Each structure stands twice: as structure tokens, then as C-alpha cells.
Deep mutational scan, measured.
Amino acid sequence: MTYKLILNGKTLKGETTTEAVDAATAEKVFKQYANDNGSDGEWTYDDATKTFTVTE
């Protein structure tokens, strides 16, 4: 399945997607991506749209 990440950071904004077997796997990928790019904030997940959002 395709999962989407929306970044609403102070310095990093945008979207990216990943293919993953489940939401937990996608979350690990996205959290590593956000960490690698210095983005940290409040995470939410919408199962209906398969979208993670991180807001700083």
C-alpha cells in the first residue's frame, strides 16, 4: 500500500510517499525520514487516507 507523509515543519515542509506492508512499517520509514531532515513534532495518522502528518 502507498502511505503519504505531510510535513508541516518550521523549516521543512512538503509531502512524500512510501510503499509499505502496513501503517506501522510506513511510520518507521517516515519517522526516520523526518529525523534525518531535522523535523520533530506532533504526529497524527488518518487511516482512511493512509496519511501521516507531522506538525512542528
Rank of each mutant, 00 (worst) to 15 (best):
M1F: 14
M1N: 14
M1Y: 15
M1P: 10
M1A: 13
T2R: 11
T2G: 04
T2F: 08
T2H: 07
T2Q: 09
T2L: 13
T2W: 12
T2N: 06
Y3S: 03
Y3T: 03
Y3A: 03
Y3L: 02
Y3C: 04
Y3P: 04
Y3W: 05
Y3I: 04
K4E: 04
K4F: 12
K4C: 07
K4M: 06
K4D: 04
K4W: 10
K4G: 03
K4N: 05
K4Y: 14
L5Q: 01
L5M: 04
L5G: 02
L5Y: 02
L5V: 04
L5D: 03
L5H: 02
L5N: 02
I6F: 06
I6E: 03
I6Y: 05
I6H: 04
I6K: 06
I6S: 03
I6V: 10
I6C: 07
I6N: 03
I6A: 03
I6Q: 04
I6D: 02
L7R: 02
L7Q: 03
L7T: 05
L7K: 01
N8Y: 12
N8H: 11
N8L: 13
N8F: 13
N8I: 15
N8E: 08
G9T: 15
G9S: 08
G9R: 06
G9Q: 05
G9W: 07
G9D: 04
K10N: 11
K10Y: 09
K10F: 11
K10A: 11
K10R: 12
K10C: 14
K10P: 12
T11L: 12
T11Y: 13
T11H: 13
L12C: 15
L12D: 07
L12A: 10
L12R: 11
L12G: 12
L12N: 11
L12S: 11
K13C: 14
K13D: 05
K13I: 10
K13M: 09
K13G: 06
K13R: 11
G14K: 14
G14F: 15
G14I: 15
G14Y: 15
G14A: 12
G14C: 15
G14Q: 13
G14E: 10
G14N: 09
E15N: 06
E15Y: 13
E15H: 10
E15R: 06
E15C: 15
E15T: 12
E15S: 10
T16G: 04
T16S: 07
T16E: 05
T16Q: 09
T16L: 15
T16R: 12
T17I: 07
T17H: 08
T17N: 05
T17F: 13
T17K: 06
T18W: 06
T18M: 09
T18G: 02
T18N: 02
T18Y: 09
T18L: 11
T18V: 14
T18P: 01
T18R: 04
T18K: 03
T18S: 04
E19A: 07
E19P: 04
E19Y: 15
E19C: 14
E19S: 10
E19W: 15
E19G: 04
E19V: 15
A20M: 02
A20F: 04
A20Q: 06
A20Y: 02
A20K: 01
V21H: 11
V21G: 08
V21Y: 11
V21M: 12
V21I: 12
D22Y: 02
D22P: 01
D22C: 04
D22Q: 02
D22I: 02
D22E: 03
A23S: 08
A23P: 08
A23E: 06
A23K: 13
A24I: 09
A24F: 08
A24H: 09
A24C: 14
A24S: 09
A24E: 11
A24V: 09
T25Q: 13
T25R: 05
T25H: 11
T25I: 06
T25L: 06
T25D: 07
A26N: 00
A26K: 00
A26L: 00
A26D: 01
A26Y: 00
A26C: 01
A26E: 00
A26R: 00
E27N: 04
E27Y: 15
E27I: 07
E27R: 08
E27L: 15
E27H: 11
E27A: 09
K28G: 06
K28C: 07
K28E: 08
K28F: 08
K28Y: 07
K28T: 07
K28M: 10
V29P: 00
V29S: 04
V29A: 07
V29I: 14
V29H: 10
V29M: 09
V29W: 14
V29K: 08
F30V: 00
F30Y: 01
F30H: 01
F30N: 00
K31T: 04
K31Q: 07
Q32E: 10
Q32K: 13
Q32H: 06
Q32L: 08
Q32C: 05
Y33A: 03
Y33V: 05
Y33M: 05
Y33H: 04
Y33D: 01
Y33S: 01
Y33C: 03
Y33K: 02
A34Q: 03
A34M: 13
A34I: 13
A34H: 03
A34C: 14
A34F: 08
N35F: 14
N35K: 15
N35Q: 15
N35M: 15
N35P: 03
D36H: 08
D36R: 08
D36G: 06
D36A: 12
D36N: 09
D36E: 13
N37T: 10
N37K: 12
N37Y: 13
N37R: 13
G38T: 05
G38M: 12
G38K: 07
G38P: 02
G38V: 07
S39K: 09
S39M: 15
S39I: 15
S39H: 15
S39D: 05
S39Y: 15
S39C: 15
S39E: 11
D40L: 12
D40R: 12
D40A: 12
D40M: 13
D40V: 14
D40T: 14
G41R: 04
G41N: 06
G41F: 12
G41L: 12
G41H: 06
G41D: 04
E42M: 11
E42S: 09
E42N: 09
E42H: 11
W43D: 01
W43K: 00
W43R: 00
W43T: 01
W43A: 01
W43M: 05
W43V: 02
T44P: 00
T44K: 08
T44V: 09
T44N: 08
T44I: 08
Y45V: 00
Y45H: 00
Y45P: 00
Y45T: 00
Y45C: 00
Y45F: 05
D46K: 02
D46E: 06
D46F: 03
D46G: 00
D46I: 04
D47K: 07
D47A: 14
D47N: 08
D47R: 06
A48G: 07
A48P: 06
A48M: 10
A48Q: 10
A48D: 10
T49W: 03
T49R: 05
T49P: 00
T49M: 05
T49V: 04
T49D: 04
T49Q: 06
K50L: 10
K50V: 02
K50T: 02
K50Q: 08
K50N: 07
T51Y: 01
T51L: 03
T51Q: 03
T51S: 04
T51F: 01
T51N: 01
T51H: 01
T51R: 02
T51C: 02
F52D: 00
F52W: 06
F52L: 01
F52S: 01
F52M: 00
T53Y: 12
T53E: 04
T53C: 06
T53H: 06
T53M: 09
T53G: 02
T53W: 09
V54C: 08
V54Q: 03
V54A: 02
V54R: 03
V54W: 11
V54Y: 11
V54P: 00
V54D: 01
V54S: 02
V54H: 03
T55P: 01
T55K: 06
T55C: 08
T55R: 05
T55W: 10
E56P: 11
E56R: 05
E56G: 07
E56N: 07
E56D: 11
E56W: 13
E56V: 11
